[in-house]
Amino acid sequence: MPAESTVPDALAPPFPALGAAPPLGRGRRLPFLSLTIIGGFVLVALLADVLSPADPEAQSLRARFTPPVWDARGTWAHVLGTDRLGRDLLARVIWGARVSLMAGVLTVLLASAFGAAVGLVAGYYRGRVDAALMRVTDATMSFPVILLALILAVTVGPSFTNVVIAIAVILWARYARVVRGQVLTLMELDFITQARIAGASAWRIITRHLLPNTLNTLVVLITLQIGYVIIVEASLSFLGAGIPPPTPAWGSMIAEGRDFVTSAWWVSFFPGLAILLVVLAFNLLGDWLRDTLDPKLRQL
């Protein structure tokens, strides 16, 4: 074997990179609906300033609980009606897209970056490093995420940043576990052994060989968990520990509107519908990605 003459990069394994997914056959059709929904909401989030018909935080107590426009008492001034403080629901749902999507994406990116790093290090070095890191991971995983967020909320007050941090601080452990598992398997493969013999540094092996081979899994997990985070944030709002009003976040809008499901259904219905569509789309996209990229991934 011409070990000396071979640069480690040439030894890269035939991993199915994102672009090189198996051909789209039956059941592999792009999930157009999910992509459209996600794309649509991302656009809405980006263009919230332009699209929003009103200031989402502007109150008008006299106009509280105005029903949607198609109701006899509705007006075109508030197409989807208003909430208990008379704020325009359409504006809040539009701005809420920005807040809720940001919360979901940011949290998951933070968690996956940190978790992947821990998983890579633990899997690469094995031994004591692995044992120590995995115990911390275990401890983290057994801490209920909602409890941590609640504690943070009563300690420093609920806020966008705190919600993102609280969820990410727990969520990373899942990534760490999955990535470490994959790395352990990869480490047994020839191309890693060869790279080591060729004198590649730990950094190089981790970033050039191990990380790319875990990307598929990461992408699937990230997609699946964006929805989960949005739902967790909503639950936190219900417990008074989510992104607090007046910031328009879908979760807190539903939580606020829950006492009016019979008297003013629209207050919780429209943000609820938005959450439903987005989370459903992310979940279905995640399922599709998994079928396509990483059919053997065993994750919830």
């Binding site: 739902i231 909503a234 219900f238 979940n283």
Partner: peptide, 15 residues
């Protein structure tokens, strides 16, 4: 089947 399953996870439980 996937949509039915995923629906349960797509709505806040309290709602």
């Amino acid at each position: 089947a996937q949509v039915i399953a995923v629906l349960g996870q797509s709505l806040p439980t309290f709602w």
